[in-house]
Amino acid sequence: MSIKNAAYISGTLFFGSINAWANGDSGSDYNCDYEIPSGQYLLDGDQMQIPPGSTVCLAPGERGPLRIKNITGTSDQPVVIRNRDNQVLFTPYEYSMALDNVSWVRVTSTPDPVSGGYGIRLGGTIGVGMLSHHVELDNLEIYRARFAGMLVKTDPNCNPDTWAENFIMEGVYIHDNYIHDTEEGEGMYIGYTAKSRNLVCEGEEITVYPHQLRDVKIYNNTLENIAADGIQIGAIQSDAQVTGNRIYRTGVSPFAPVWQNTGIQAGGDDIEISDNQIIESGGNGMMLDGDNIRVINNLVHSAGENSIFARNAAQQNSALSGGLPHLYQNNTLIKSANYGIKLYATNTSSAHILTGNLIETDGIMDVTGKYRTLSYLNDSVIREESNNRHYISAPSE
């Protein structure tokens, strides 16, 4: 392994060449341009003068939290932060990594050659904020977090750069991670969920609006034993995909009163949710809020409320209309406590499509005398149904 530059430590940047070998294998070259020792808690790209295309390696062993700021890569030359060779274990703390004002940065790991486990294991939240964008988080284990496992957003504040009209968070790619045993919050908390925020700035009360997100890809993650929602994304402007994730047992310790206990909660427009498995969510398997939402080929089993509950902005504001419809296609929805799909998205430009869905219920009728398969707010929910199938669960012995 060749390390071209040592780390920035205690205000001094040490240059040089360090040669070392991982596990005695002189044939392994990890191409580390910088190494961050376990006792260093700040990685400042400005101070270290980290150029695009660099690989920054974390020394193996136990360590405390790490703040990473002011790092800028490019689309062709992102900056990669990863384990050097053996496992890096972040001990339990409020946060493990905080990425502030970074762009075109990837945090990843390769498996520990000794245990075969993840090369980076985090005992606290990994946060991405302070106007960061184009960030990739992959192949990480978050084995404990007091609040959310991942927290990806910039809260609007008195700095106008953080306001919706001045900033959009783009290029958020999160994949192949294992997140489990959060104590109070979500597995992933992505995007600011409130519509606005009231602040006092320079003695004046103002209302500011949070940034939106676009180009968001969340795929192939495993989430287990999550206190609140499994995956929560909000303020999506366009082009979000949540696909191929495995989510087991969410809402195990939700906020009081009981809410934010879904498998996937998604808010915004132009969102695709496909090929996910959601098992034993405390509340709805999915809770969706927006227009042009496409839900395809998912499995939802044993949801504590509805397998899928969905609405849009028009349902909450009668002055709105004309949003693009939803698509629900080829989903398998098994044994939810309430309905298979409860759809409250109103006054769309054309009909919602519900086709090829398989719904299994316990056979109990609702107050209208119908099986609890598909339910609509009223006739303002325009819809077309085709080829949906209903089965009644076999009685347990």
Rank of each mutant, 00 (worst) to 15 (best):
E272C: 08
N83E: 04
G171F: 09
N388Q: 14
V79K: 08
R82C: 02
D239C: 03
Y391K: 13
H352D: 08
G369H: 10
L333N: 02
M150S: 03
V367E: 09
A194R: 14
D176M: 13
P60D: 02
E360A: 11
V258E: 04
T110F: 11
G73W: 14
A164S: 11
H352E: 01
P257V: 06
Q87W: 02
G290V: 02
C32K: 00
G123D: 04
Y209S: 03
P60E: 08
A345W: 13
I81V: 12
C32G: 08
W259E: 01
S380I: 10
G268I: 08
S380P: 06
F90Y: 10
G64K: 10
E141D: 12
A240W: 00
S380Y: 13
G53Y: 10
D379G: 12
L131P: 03
S96H: 11
W259F: 12
K370L: 11
D29G: 05
Y248W: 09
A98F: 02
I218W: 05
G340C: 06
S196M: 14
H211E: 04
L151Y: 11
I236D: 00
P257H: 10
N177K: 12
E360V: 15
T125N: 03
T346I: 13
N298E: 03
R389D: 03
N312V: 08
T162S: 02
E385S: 05
N220Y: 10
N276G: 03
G16F: 09
P160Q: 08
H390P: 01
Q232H: 15
S75E: 14
P37F: 12
P113C: 07
T243R: 01
P111N: 04
I190P: 01
I168K: 03
A337I: 10
T348F: 05
Y8T: 04
D362N: 14
Q316F: 09
T110R: 13
S375N: 15
Q237F: 14
T346P: 06
R63S: 09
I68W: 07
G285R: 03
S386A: 15
V128I: 15
I278S: 01
T12Y: 12
N177W: 09
Y391N: 07
A240D: 00
Y93R: 08
T55C: 04
A22S: 04
G24M: 08
S26M: 10
I353Q: 09
R214H: 11
K335G: 08
L354D: 00
Q329P: 00
L320V: 12
D100F: 13
T193P: 01
E62W: 03
P325N: 04
E204A: 13
P395Q: 13
D270Y: 00
N31I: 10
I9E: 05
E280G: 03
N83W: 11
P60W: 10
Y344L: 12
